[in-house]
Write a protein that binds this DNA or RNA. Structure first.
Length: 578
RNA sequence: CGGGGUAUAGCGCAGUCUGGCUAGCGCGGCUGCUUUGGGAGCAGUAGGUCGCAGGUUCGAAUCCUGCUACCCCGACCA
């Protein structure tokens, strides 16, 4: 390709709206252009990258017996009514009516569509296992798109769905797919992608993993220990603290704490630390008040609490709710509450830490030296569920190896779920087993965000001048810069090299504009092509060209006669490895 | 959905508080000449519904009212 004709200009100044490196460089480098909030067009350079990402994904999906299909973006609502998601999914599902007033929607994921295919095409155990995948546009009406291509409304996603006759078969395939994902992210050139066990969320099902590209602008927090032997996301990460269970129980005492409600106020007034206190957090779940108790230095994790209670929604309780169970807002204590319509959940941090400061269930008073087993009635102790409901914290020991936890930010570039029969059951996707009996197919689903991967790779692979594309997905493999095109010989040499590399099958971007060196180099840095050669009067005087790698690892002179063979071979070898 | 911000040439911005001639600057575009190893110089030239709609005024980019779009923080998020 000749730069003089390449569509998509480079921009010298940082666009006002762009804040993260991937957003800035993808705009400045002429890869993508915004169209509306969270909706982008791909320019030629961006499209080439995306196509290469897709090609790698296809190879690996095919390698695990995936069969590519293509399902519609626009779907009738009935399908989603069958699964129940037309009701259960919120406003991120874009619903609209066609001219016949028929309710339609834009697919944000394709479980329903693929199950519709599976239930007509797959009827017998002899056809299983089977996996269908597609690379297709999805639409999610995100409340707040952000960070360029990281969180968008319209995006391309590879989504795959597998069908099995048994849980064992699903688990085996799931593990194959996990391995395929590891290969994909390696081949795409990511520096660091962690696979993390995750909460299944709205997809339903049991086992799930998220593939997190580590990056400062990531929206998700990941907890890992120093050597990576423990890793978990915020929803499931735990820390294991040792509690001083042997400490002697000091006498319970009631203290006057006028108008002091927050942990901060109470503990500093009593000259204690937050970890010497317990705090109560009240929620309403259905008719029940949830009385959650955690140690004062922790934060409550609502997702853990919701999972524990087996509910999708909880809301904060009102003062009236709290009063109704015999407690006092701001000075709440488990002591002396009524047990009607109350669920008590206590985090181990509060349960096992001795001599805590807690509310006295009386305005303006707190207890000090509260101890669970000594100071609560048998009924209340028995009614208390002891469970992990707090956020893990940096520096706390991990629950498996006791090593300090480190927090990292990640971008979710892929995820895999063992769905089970959630969709096949609801939508009657059954098969006949060897005994002629009908069973719902057991499903798995597997996603990768294509555009998000491109952005996440920029987050991991860039310097102060622009992206440094891995060769496997670079828009071109080699760039030729010709300096002083009007000086004798430069143009001829550059043109000849351009054609020779093309003949070798190398993808070349040739800067054939008569621009100054600095101008060309800055542009080249923004385009981030891994191999670069520079032809100028100086170099051709020695029958040479300069060869540079974008990552700065190589800078050397090569003779014009050998450069084509040498670099073509090298590029092909590198591509083979990826 | 809550909080904050922005909207003036393709891009980045000034001008708005305190209304006043023909709305400016830098980059980019086009023409010509010079220049040529890290975003060149000179000269010329094109490019604007000042986000939209009302209102106040002799006069509105500027003041008032309503609306829209986009960005940031949070909530939410297969």
């Amino acid at each position: 390709m000749r730069m003089s004709k390449l569509v998509g200009r480079r921009i010298k100044e940082t666009p006002r709206d762009a804040t993260t490196p991937s957003h800035i460089y993808l705009i400045r480098g002429g890869y993508v252009r915004p169209v509306s909030a969270g909706i982008y067009s791909l320019l030629p350079l961006g499209k080439r990258i995306v196509s290469k990402i897709e090609a790698i994904i296809r190879e690996e999906m095919d390698a695990i017996q995936g069969q590519e299909v293509l399902m519609p973006v626009v779907l009738p609502s009935e399908l989603w009514e069958e699964s129940g998601r037309f009701e259960s999914v919120g406003d991120e599902l874009l619903r609209f009516k066609d001219r016949n007033d028929k309710q339609m929607l834009l697919g944000m994921t394709h479980e329903e569509a693929v199950v519709q295919l599976a239930r007509t095409e797959l009827n017998s155990y002899k056809q299983l296992p089977a996996m269908m995948y597609q690379i297709q546009t999805k639409y999610r009406d995100e409340a707040r798109p952000r960070a360029g291509l990281i969180r968008v409304r319209e995006f391309t996603m590879k989504d795959a769905y597998s069908f099995h006759e048994s849980q064992e078969c699903l688990e085996e395939y799931y593990s194959d797919c996990h391995e395929a994902y590891v290969r994909i992210f390696n081949r795409l050139g990511f520096r660091e992608v962690l696979s993390i066990k995750s909460d299944a969320g709205m997809m339903g099902g049991n086992v799930a993993h998220e593939f997190m590209a580590i990056a400062d602008c990531g929206e998700d927090t990941i907890f890992v220990n120093e050597d990576g032997s423990y890793k978990a996301n915020r929803e499931i990460a735990k820390s294991s603290l040792a509690y001083e269970t042997d400490s002697p129980h000091i006498e319970l005492e009631k203290k006057y704490t006028p108008d002091l409600k927050s942990i901060e106020e109470v503990t500093s007034f009593l000259n204690a630390k937050p970890e010497n206190s317990a705090k109560a957090v009240f929620y309403k779940s259905g008719d029940d008040v949830v009385f959650a108790v955690i140690r004062g230095d922790f934060e409550l994790n609502e997702i853990k609490l919701k999972n524990l209670l087996g509910v999708n929604e909880i809301e904060f309780a009102t003062d009236e709710d709290i009063t109704a169970i015999g407690s006092v807002p701001g000075f709440a204590s488990l002591k002396d509450i009524t047990l009607n319509n109350v669920k008590i959940v206590m985090d181990p941090s509060a349960r096992y830490s001795p001599n805590l400061i807690v509310g006295a269930n009386e305005a303006d008073y707190h207890f000090v030296n509260f101890n669970f087993e000594r100071d609560l009635s048998k009924e209340i102790q028995d009614a208390t569920i002891i469970a992990d409901i707090v956020n893990a914290r940096a520096g706390d020991p991990d629950p498996e190896f006791g090593k300090p936890l480190i927090l990292k930010k990640g971008i979710e570039v892929g995820n895999i779920f063992q769905l089970g029969t959630k969709y096949s059951g609801a939508m009657n996707a059954i098969f006949l087993d060897q005994n002629g009996k009908s069973n719902p197919m057991i499903m798995g689903c597997y996603g990768i965000g294509v555009g998000r991967s491109m952005a996440a790779i920029v987050e991991q692979c860039h310097d102060d001048w622009g992206p440094v594309w891995p060769i496997s997905i670079a828009p071109y493999q080699l760039q030729i810069n010709a300096l002083n095109l009007n000086k004798t010989g430069v143009k001829e040499v550059a043109e000849n090299l351009y054609k020779a590399f093309l003949t070798e099958g190398i993808e070349v971007l040739y800067d054939d504009r008569n621009e100054k060196a600095g101008f060309q180099f800055k542009d080249a840095d923004l385009i981030g092509i891994p191999y670069r050669i520079i032809v100028s009067p100086k170099t051709i005087a020695e029958n040479q060209v300069e060869f540079k790698k974008r990552d700065g690892s190589v800078k050397e002179m090569l003779s014009i006669s050998e450069v084509v063979t040498k670099l073509s071979t090298q590029i092909k070898e590198e591509l083979k490895k990826a």
